[in-house]
Design a protein around this nucleic acid. Structure first.
Lengths: 249, 249
DNA sequence: CCCTTCTGCGTATGTCATACGCTGATGCGT
DNA sequence: ACGCATCAGCGTATGACATACGCAGAAGGG
């Protein structure tokens, strides 16, 4: 009943290290950390779909129901897994200015999602509240320290940037998954998509799509992240214009 | 065995109207359209979580397994439901220029997602290929017709814009859902989030987050879509700068 | 030394997606 | 007019899964 904890859900308390070991009862054989780590391992090796309470428990040599002493719900476990997977953000590169900072934030986040592609498959259900999520949020906000942006503008700027990253990572993961499911390479999958579009989308009905297909961009894979960098740069250009405008009245 | 169909999955053929009624066998009592409509109805009234094959069948007075004559998988049904729900895009407002066009595209999409918030909960698994998805894509691309943008740049521009819309809609839906679950108003839920953050995120460890919390923006709800419009405007500013730059060499 | 508290977990329940195969309707070719 | 191939509807069965409930034994405090 310490004053830290009132009103805070137990998992949050645990995740933020606010929980004291209860003084009675047998020593726990499991730990929240070990459970979460086991979940991450399953997700990393066999995909998010393989993460079931039973499977995670088996990974630990424990029984399914034992996990529920540490987690009230599977969704809670997933949330903890995500937080463990994203980990501590890298340090803000010093002295680079806000634009370099936001760019490195975006690249680091993208890197992370690409390396652990199951993370983007976990559906969001709430605003960020877990420790490492907050740490990343702090990273993003910190890059804009000292700019002429209002706090709410900074918040939304990182929402936009991370949204761009997530969308790109999700698209890439989907294409990769489709490629793997069909037993072909990523390029072949993209090519197949272009062909499908050409077959189905009547250019008379969908002129703009027809132009797109005809241009052949779907068949010529560009550099890995050209489009990502394009979108990011456009947003940052717009932000830069606003900041400049504010600074020179 | 018409030459349209080779290599095209049956649901796609059905969705694009490429299927002929088989000439033998009993007359179907169900239709793909009716099944999809029933699914949409269930999702709209009781949420995406209530959509199960059994429930959709009950809605139609049919047996669960009957649906599998029209759909090979629940995921297929979901994809069809999404396409039905998004429907035909509104017409491109004439003569407004690309920026007005993209803005109206974004607003129309946001409106749609807000009105049918279950749609954003359906996980993506592939690039857009269903008829109405293509129609929306055509809408987005068409707004940029005649600009100095390359086709791949146009494609990514609408990916960014729709990503911004989806992220915003998802956040709003999450907050609303959390509010409803807690039996409070949306403002109270947002307020509670701010308080939670203040309690958990130590300003010494997370200075930028501390500043954000201290600024009070989390407690003062802004106009409904101010942040959305802010992010969208920044991106469009950046795009505009690029276009201008291309047009005046 | 007993009583409270807590851990691990066996069992049971209810929900789902979905495979398989039967029954009967339909209409084509003869 | 008839038989057969084809296809719709669906009953039954299976196998995952999340999770409620309650018991047995461990640990420490009084």
């Amino acid at each position: 009943m310490s004053e830290h904890e009132d009103g805070i859900p137990p998992v949050l308390a645990a995740a933020w290290g606010l929980r004291e070991r209860p003084v009675k009862g047998p020593r726990p054989g499991l730990t929240l950390e070990r459970i979460v780590a086991a979940g991450v391992k399953v997700a990393a090796t066999d995909g998010l779909g393989a993460v079931s309470m039973g499977r995670v428990a088996r990974e630990l040599g424990a029984a399914t129901m034992s996990l529920y002493r540490y987690v009230t719900t599977k969704d809670e476990l997933l949330e903890l897994m995500v937080d463990a997977a994203i980990g501590q953000p890298p340090p803000v590169p010093p002295g680079g200015g806000w634009r370099a900072g936001l760019t490195s934030f975006a690249r680091a986040y993208l890197d992370l999602l690409r390396r652990q592609s199951w993370v983007i498959r976990v559906p969001f259900n709430s605003p960020p509240i877990m420790p490492n999520q907050i740490a990343w949020m702090n990273y993003g906000l910190a890059t804009m320290g000292g700019t002429a942006l209002r706090q709410d503008e900074r918040l939304f700027a990182i929402m936009i940037v991370s949204g761009i990253v997530r969308n790109w990572a999700l698209l890439a993961a989907d294409i990769n998954a489709a490629a793997q499911a069909g037993g072909v390479t990523t390029e072949q999958a993209m090519f197949g998509y272009g062909r499908l579009l050409k077959r189905l989308a009547d250019p008379a009905r969908f002129p703009a799509v027809g132009e797109l297909v005809a241009s052949g961009v779907l068949e010529t894979p560009e550099g890995p992240d050209d489009d990502f960098e394009f979108g990011l740069a456009r947003f940052l250009d717009g932000l830069e214009a606003l900041i400049r405008n504010r600074e020179t009245p």
